Simulated scan of single mutants.
Amino acid sequence: MCKLHAQAQQKECDIRLNATVSSTGNLTNDGKGTYYTGKDWIGVWLNPTRWPDQAFHICMNWPFNFFKTCDSATAPAPTGTRGNRTLLHHITNPVPGGGGKSLGVFTGPGGGNDIAISKPLTATINSFTDMTIGTSLSPLSTEVRFCNSDCTEYFSILFGNSSVMHHPGINGAGSTRPIVSRTSNTTWTISFPPGTVGRLWNRTPEVPTSELYYYEGSLEIKKQ
């Protein structure tokens, strides 16, 4: 069990973060500034208890009340307004020759708009907190999820091996992987550099369909 007062607890689970999201590219912020875990029901986490096979998760409507976490006894309750924040996904750059087309900009909403990175990160590095300061790596799998304006269609972009959220029948074939860099004891950068390719899946049909798209952007994350 995680100890509420022990320093080791902070290394193992539910590390609360703030995130600054890029303002240009295919992943952009909503123009409302930093994303804070607990404010407007946003969750930005390292090693979330909810999903022990994830190293990182950012969600626009985190289910704070639905499950226990390592810091449940001391964690502050969420504040603000549900649905006040979003991430913008510009699905406008299909890889030539694949049959894809520009689909426009997707904004969520809510819990249907998140980004998750698998745990372990690589065959030798388990989590963000295990990285040495000044080093970078490419995680095995990353998944970006969102839906259309009324969530009648659901999408995932996969980078790397497989679905981080365990959606059946989808994979990351033909994709490249983002880069995670540890910049200090409390900060990291998650980057989708120019030329990054993700496999976009429409998970709505009975048989999911996919195409390759360029996806560029970044998140700078910091422990609260």
Results as ranks from 00 to 15, higher is better:
125 I>L: 10
126 N>V: 09
139 P>V: 12
13 C>Y: 05
76 P>F: 11
189 T>C: 11
106 F>T: 09
215 Y>H: 04
192 F>C: 06
151 C>P: 06
197 V>T: 15
196 T>Y: 02
61 N>T: 11
153 E>Q: 10
71 D>T: 12
15 I>C: 07
35 Y>A: 06
144 V>F: 08
11 K>F: 08
212 L>W: 13
115 I>Y: 07
52 P>K: 12
69 T>N: 12
30 D>V: 03
186 T>S: 12
164 V>A: 10
191 S>H: 11
20 T>A: 07
94 P>S: 08
72 S>G: 12
88 L>F: 14
209 T>Q: 09
161 N>M: 04
72 S>I: 15
218 S>K: 06
65 N>H: 03
84 N>C: 00
213 Y>F: 13
197 V>E: 10
114 D>V: 02
20 T>M: 11
191 S>T: 11
169 G>H: 05
188 W>K: 11
202 N>C: 05
164 V>P: 06
125 I>M: 12
204 T>S: 04
69 T>L: 04
187 T>W: 08
63 P>N: 05
81 T>C: 00
156 S>W: 02
190 I>Y: 13
153 E>L: 01
219 L>P: 02
218 S>R: 03
41 W>Q: 03
58 I>M: 07
13 C>F: 12
146 F>E: 00
29 N>R: 03
174 G>E: 11
175 S>W: 06
201 W>R: 00
74 T>G: 00
86 T>Q: 14
119 K>L: 12
71 D>C: 15
143 E>L: 00
177 R>F: 05
121 L>V: 06
49 T>L: 15
148 N>F: 09
153 E>K: 00
71 D>V: 10
191 S>Q: 07
178 P>R: 10
202 N>G: 09
127 S>W: 15
62 W>F: 07
24 T>M: 08
217 G>S: 08
215 Y>C: 04
131 M>V: 01
171 N>S: 03
196 T>R: 04
63 P>G: 04
167 H>E: 15
220 E>V: 14
65 N>F: 04
170 I>T: 00
107 T>R: 13
59 C>L: 04
98 G>Q: 01
108 G>F: 14
89 H>D: 02
81 T>K: 15
205 P>C: 06
35 Y>W: 08
87 L>D: 01
17 L>A: 04
94 P>I: 14
186 T>F: 05
197 V>N: 10
180 V>H: 02
197 V>F: 03
156 S>H: 11
156 S>Y: 01
190 I>S: 01
143 E>H: 04
151 C>V: 05
39 K>D: 13
180 V>F: 09
18 N>G: 08
174 G>W: 05
77 A>L: 15
48 P>W: 14
